[in-house]
Write a protein that binds this DNA or RNA. Structure first.
Lengths: 347, 347
DNA sequence: GGACGTGGGAGACAGATGAGCAACAAGAAC
DNA sequence: GTTCTTGTTGCTCATCTGTCTCCCACGTCC
């Protein structure tokens, strides 16, 4: 219970040695030659007094705070932020670091982002994690560069900062392959309308994967709407009213899949009997709670947070050169989370 | 862009004054007598050099870090944590403080909680926020007491720590009153089975509110199940199969309400035409995306985080005495979030 | 007189702060 | 009209926060 008023010199007095010796013993300095008895005296004195080092003073002296800054967009509005934070926090804790959190808005001005980073720099964090809420290309404040930093779930406009992003294409491929493996040949895609990497890449992977399976990828039906439940509903209504109605749907995200569930229900189509569905995102609250459970592809938010933190710490400790990794973003795979929304097509 | 290598003495040299003067000017020390010209010189020198104070050194000297520790349970598993964090972060930022986050598990040992708090204390945070993921009675590590602290969404076993909690009874009353106001007289309650304050208090408010409306609260139907979608489904199936089927349902939380939606659909009951439903929690992802939108009662997570932070900072700055507030937990109200799941009963 | 074993002293990190020191002006004493 | 006191303005010096780390000191043994 580190009493805030007890310092190294109190321990020194209690143990009858100098502060230098206490420091040597407690930090297990390699070159220090101190007898085992003295070490014991110091250690027990420290424990009895409830001594805990003042990390501020240590940091001031050593130029290392053991703190990482995390500026995260829209912490509360998506569950994604929580998973990134958790991944980062656990990875940091495992290596003796702590996390300083700053929230920002996805639409915040460059100047306000700059101020956020500045606040972290004044606290002399050893490195900075910059996490966005969805995969895109972001413009980052220039002062980010003055300390090792890693971008989570986006790539930098300048392209000169190490980044981790999800494997959009691989994830889409995984989803479509799950449908193909179940025997489906007429597969539709409910896509998003935003101009973000995920929209383009998932569409590309959708077509390519079908083509590789010997199907006509270009002709496969795609309906685009905003990536919300009502968008998914609208897109699914159109898609399912076609003459050559697909037997399976790949949805841009779980929210759209939720809309598709409703559309299917209204049209008297049962899932997965009449229609198989795959989502994307693995938003527990939706995917696990729909009926039947939604098979979906998970975004590796936890993993990206942990990966970024690991490599950031490596860089801080001089074990890695981030500038080498900055050339290409690191891509983490999106695994399939199987539930009950896929089965073989009828007949 | 605070260059990490620029210190107060560089500014002093550039401005041609002493470091003392720079410190006086930049901190706007009240008793310092410095000419306007000198002040200008100092300020422009500081700006040109991109000087930013080293908060570590400041903190070491002033015994104030301007950092608050937040130990939060299960950051990623519920969206609730995100809202508490956001409330705390924004309140802290508004007053010039920053947040240091530590994640812990709801089932973590007392010793590991102690270590988490200890880590915060070593960093000399000015105060600590301790947030739990659902309203309950928690046992807290003893070292929490060595610095001002506030409990968010729980009360302490010893009862000697200032706490903010949601108004469970008021929220339940609000929900039931919304149903009564729509004209419902046969209202059922789908309750949770866990032995937590919310379970008891919401049930109590349910019965009391009915009684006050001249109905037989004791006789009103209650079905209890685990507070998940499938629990809500099972409870609703039983509830809706009764001879005196209620025309409205108050659900312990939005997840159970989601289960009730499915049960209603299976029984051919339309919402809200044949059955009105109110939830609890306001989990966006569910409540806003069900069809029809679920009217529900919101838990004030953002507000609790903000309230706790405000008062913690007040205590840190000597404006409040937390020990006085520790006598009774502060209760924040749970407002109704109206959507489309309530209407007047048929005929 | 080195080598070895054991330990301590004195900055340095970056900034905050109370006491104190020139410089000058106004008023008072001579 | 000069010197002395007193007061004010403007700024600086020395010291402090808690810890680390380079360098040195002392004694003993071969």
């Amino acid at each position: 219970m580190s009493n805030k008023n007890i310092g190294i010199k109190d321990v020194a007095t209690a143990a009858g040695v100098s502060v230098t010796t206490v420091s040597h013993v407690l930090n297990e300095v390699a070159y220090a030659r101190i007898s085992p008895e003295t070490r014991d005296k110091v250690r027990s004195a420290a424990e009895q007094l409830g001594y805990g080092p003042n990390r501020l003073a240590q940091a001031l002296r050593t130029q290392r705070t053991g703190m990482l800054g995390l500026v995260s967009e829209d912490i509360a509005t998506t569950p994604h932020a929580g998973r990134i934070i958790l991944g980062a926090e656990e990875a940091a804790k495992a290596r003796g670091y702590n996390l300083m959190i700053i929230n920002t808005s996805g639409s915040a001005s460059l100047e306000s982002r700059r101020d956020d980073v500045e606040a972290l720099l004044e606290r002399r964090v050893d490195g900075i994690l910059y996490a966005t809420m969805y995969h895109r290309i972001v413009e980052l404040p220039a002062n980010l560069g003055s300390v090792p930093s890693v971008l989570v779930d986006s790539v930098a406009a300048g392209g000169n900062i190490t980044a981790v992003i999800p494997d959009e294409e691989g994830g889409a491929r995984t989803a479509v392959e799950a449908l193909l493996a179940a025997g489906h040949r007429r597969i539709g895609f409910l896509n998003n309308t935003d101009d973000v990497p995920a929209t383009r890449q998932r569409l590309h992977a959708f077509r390519t994967t079908l083509k590789e399976a010997g199907l006509d990828g270009e002709a496969a039906p795609v309906e685009s709407e905003v990536s919300e439940v009502h968008g998914g509903y609208a897109a699914a209504r159109r898609m399912l009213s076609r003459d050559d109605r697909p037997t399976a749907l790949f949805c841009y995200n779980d929210r759209m899949a939720m809309g598709a569930y409703r559309a299917a229900a209204e049209l008297g189509l049962s899932i997965p009997g009449d229609l198989s569905v795959v989502g994307f995102d693995d938003q527990e609250l939706i995917a696990a709670n729909l009926h039947p459970g939604l098979t979906t592809v998970a975004l590796p938010h936890y993993e990206m947070g942990a990966w970024a933190t690991e490599h950031l710490i490596d860089a801080v400790e001089g074990k890695t050169d981030l500038s080498l990794m900055a050339l290409h973003p690191t891509i983490l795979s999106c695994p399939l989370v199987g539930r009950d929304s896929i089965t073989a097509p009828r007949q």
